[in-house]
Amino acid sequence: MKILLIGEYSRLHNSLKEGLLKLGNDVTLLGFKDGFKDFPVDFPLVKKWDDGFLKKVKLAVLKLTGFDISSYLTYKQFQENQQHFQGFDVVQLINENSFFCDYKHEKKILKFLFQHNKKVFLLSCGDDYVHVNYNFNHPENPSVVQPYLAEKIADNHFSNVLKFRTKPFEKLHHYLYQNIAGVIASDLDYHIPWQHHSKYLGLIPNPINLNKLPENMPEIADRVVIFHGINRESYFKKGNDFFEKALEIIQQKYPDNVTVLVSENVPYKSYINSYDKAHIILDQLYGHDQGYNALEAMAKGKVVFTNAEESFEKHYNLKEKVAVNAKPDVDYLVEQLSFLIENPNEIKAIGKRARNFIEAEHDYLKIAEKYLEVWRSTN
């Protein structure tokens, strides 16, 4: 098949591409490199007029005229290369706003893709109209909406979520929904909101290329090494405030038994190796299922504090922990960390089960085959 994957957030589409290529398909990846993460793409888009003086000019023009210069310039980048984005059997959008454009320019790009390719699918693996509105309508559901409702996140730092509650993005959602072949969820956090929609095709777990992630659980000598990776843009969304408070207590409680490593805003190529010496990884709160960073760490055989709710364990029929379910509760986090520090054999056991789980449920070749099956069977 000839396949165009659009957008990259976490390495999901890169891993899927690797699996699809291995199975003999022709695959092209178009999109942004996701800021400092710098993911590889075949046709990179650059978000222009998005910082410094030019951003101020852009915002002034937007306020005065309603014209978004950044969206226009992204559309022009697409238009200049559009001969490369047609004639595909399958196009998959990573999000309802894959090009980060306003309604007018995003719709123009999507219209071209719908007209010049056979099938277009939508992947729900981040914020979209259905997912965001579900979480606002169900505030008890663990999601990034919870720290926002707790007033930890200002509106201007939550705009990439809140935009999906506006009329233009509601219109964009309906336009997409009328034209796509179907919607695929990447984990339970997106499956739950989408599960009753007519074009929902089901959950296909995130693909992980295990060849690039060899098992790496260091021996535990005198100290347990804990790694905390921080992305400042999503600090409260990930629950880093809870992790940092828990780590302060742990370092005071076990000064001779624990080493804490912290990394902030580093490119993916550096990040993926920055926690090799660690036994425990602190990833995120507020969800049912693991995100991509957690899955890659689990593939390396680490004990990951992440989303691993009862719904996740039931879905995969798990009898033993493959990750530690992290909750927005400092005392709980301290209790869980303390248990592992005092029982290092349990660290090894969970790490081994984590690797086995990724091999069983997230192998990139198995996942690529599942995508091909769904794409082929959907009209």
Rank of each mutant, 00 (worst) to 15 (best):
P139K: 15
N231W: 15
L176C: 06
H362L: 11
V260M: 12
G301C: 10
N211I: 08
L45R: 04
R355E: 01
E80V: 07
V324H: 05
S70Q: 10
V130I: 15
Q82P: 01
Q86E: 03
V330Y: 09
Y200G: 00
H288Q: 14
G126I: 09
L62W: 03
D331F: 05
D42I: 09
N325Q: 10
L333A: 00
S186G: 10
E359I: 15
K108A: 13
E170A: 07
Q146G: 02
F339W: 12
N273R: 15
T306G: 06
L20Q: 05
D363Q: 07
N206A: 13
A323T: 07
I272M: 10
T378N: 05
V330A: 06
Q83Y: 13
E346C: 08
Q79T: 05
L337Q: 05
H138V: 00
F114L: 11
E296Q: 14
E335N: 12
L318V: 12
H197V: 00
E96A: 08
N307Q: 12
K212D: 14
R223E: 06
N240V: 04
K2L: 01
I358Y: 05
R165W: 04
F305Q: 01
I281E: 01
V258G: 02
F136K: 13
L285Q: 08
L337G: 01
F100P: 01
K352E: 09
F121R: 13
E151P: 00
K277L: 13
A60G: 10
G287Q: 08
L123N: 06
P205K: 08
N265V: 06
F236N: 03
F100L: 14
V324S: 09
I250A: 01
L113H: 11
L149A: 11
F67S: 00
A60V: 13
K56I: 08
G7Y: 03
A326N: 05
F78G: 03
A360L: 13
Y148T: 06
Q83G: 04
E244H: 08
V224L: 07
G229A: 10
F227I: 00
N117I: 08
K171M: 12
L333F: 08
F78C: 05
L149K: 15
H157Q: 12
P44K: 12
K108R: 15
Y292V: 04
N325C: 08
Y129T: 04
S263R: 15
A154T: 07
V304D: 00
E320N: 15
E106I: 13
K119P: 09
D329W: 10
E233G: 15
E361M: 11
E264V: 11
F78S: 07
E151Q: 14
S70A: 13
V266M: 14
